[in-house]
């Protein structure tokens, strides 16, 4: 009976562990091994037979003077700029909306449901709709900008060329700010009303209440929220894939799409794996750095 007691938690965990091992951990190990091989389409059926190449794949990936490394570096730069802008805007809009929706008013429930729609819609139907809106000749965006507001002389292309970055950013912010809004709304509910009442008695106006009470109270929620938004946005594949198809324009060539393209379109899995491992190292580094920095700041504040 006692042995059963000791074994019980492990038995309960077993299915979860088995699934995680098969789908996440083993593939990650296999991926690291693959990155050391010259794995082209001839070896797909039996990947272990591919010849070892040591760090050659890595050297190709970070040789920024050669086309492959140059393209990877460009894609990395685009991804960083895109992530900073998207996370920043999503956080800003989410915070603004959460604070403004804090007090009850007529129609608040309905508006909240509307704000959550982008989060509830399946990503592919939402992004397909945006694709339609961004069509040059039949889309809504050019109709409003060109035909109605006369802001642009010629109808611009949105899904190819430099504008594709802004199209991608718009869709990304549209999709992720509701999550920030949802999380921050939950976080705001933990702030006791007495705090605001006391501040109002002391003569603090709305802005001071927001700055002195609301924002500091949200700091723990923000710590997690910003990290989650960063990881989602940086790794986003679905949005650019549905918006642009298999080959994203250079200005919107996010890293996930880039690796997918280098692997499945050119059937060079070794190079793709090396890039994936580099991406993983980068994410681990950023996450660890972020957690250390934010925890230290929290410690200093207390």
């Amino acid at each position: 009976m006692t042995r059963y007691r000791t074994a019980l938690p492990y038995l309960l965990l077993l299915p979860a562990l088995a699934a995680e091992l098969l789908i996440h951990l083993v593939p990650m190990l296999v991926g690291s091994v693959m990155s050391l091989k010259q794995l082209t389409q001839f070896f797909i059926r039996d990947w272990s037979a591919a010849p070892w190449t040591g760090l050659a794949n890595y050297r190709t990936a970070v040789d920024f003077d050669a086309p492959v490394g140059r393209a990877l570096l460009d894609s990395f730069g685009v991804t960083c700029a895109f992530t900073v802008l998207s996370v920043g805007l999503s956080w800003l809009i989410g915070t603004t909306a959460a604070i403004m929706m804090q007090d009850a008013f007529r129609g608040r429930g309905l508006l909240r449901a509307a704000f959550l729609l982008p989060y509830a819609l399946p990503v592919f139907t939402a992004v397909i709709t945006w694709t339609f809106m961004f069509q040059r000749d039949t889309g809504l965006i050019n109709h409003v900008l060109h035909d109605q507001l006369h802001l642009v002389g010629d109808k611009p292309f949105w899904l190819i060329g430099g504008n594709s970055f802004w199209a991608l950013l718009t869709v990304s912010v549209w999709r992720s700010w509701p999550f920030a809004f949802l999380t921050l709304t939950a976080g705001l509910q933990n702030i006791p009303r007495e705090l605001y009442e006391a501040a109002a008695m002391d003569g603090a106006g709305v802005w001071q209440q927001i700055r002195r009470i609301t924002l500091p109270s949200l700091r723990p929620v923000n710590q997690v929220l910003v990290l989650v938004l960063f990881l989602w946005t940086f790794n986003d594949f679905n949005t650019p894939f549905v918006l642009f198809g298999k080959a994203a324009p250079k200005a919107a060539d996010l890293i996930s799409i880039h690796i997918y393209q280098s692997s499945f379109v050119t059937w060079n899995f070794g190079a793709g794996s090396a890039m994936s491992v580099l991406l993983l190292l980068f994410l681990l580094l950023v996450t660890a750095g972020y957690l250390v920095a934010t925890n230290r700041r929290r410690g200093a504040d207390d």
């Binding site: 996440h24 593939p27 990650m28 991926g31 940086f234 790794n235 994410l283």
Partner: peptide, 17 residues
């Protein structure tokens, strides 16, 4: 922590496995 890894990271190996 598996939640933070990009899908592309295990897509290729998973496909081969």
């Amino acid at each position: 922590s598996t939640q933070m890894f990009p899908g592309i990271l295990f897509l290729l190996p998973l496909f081969l496995i």
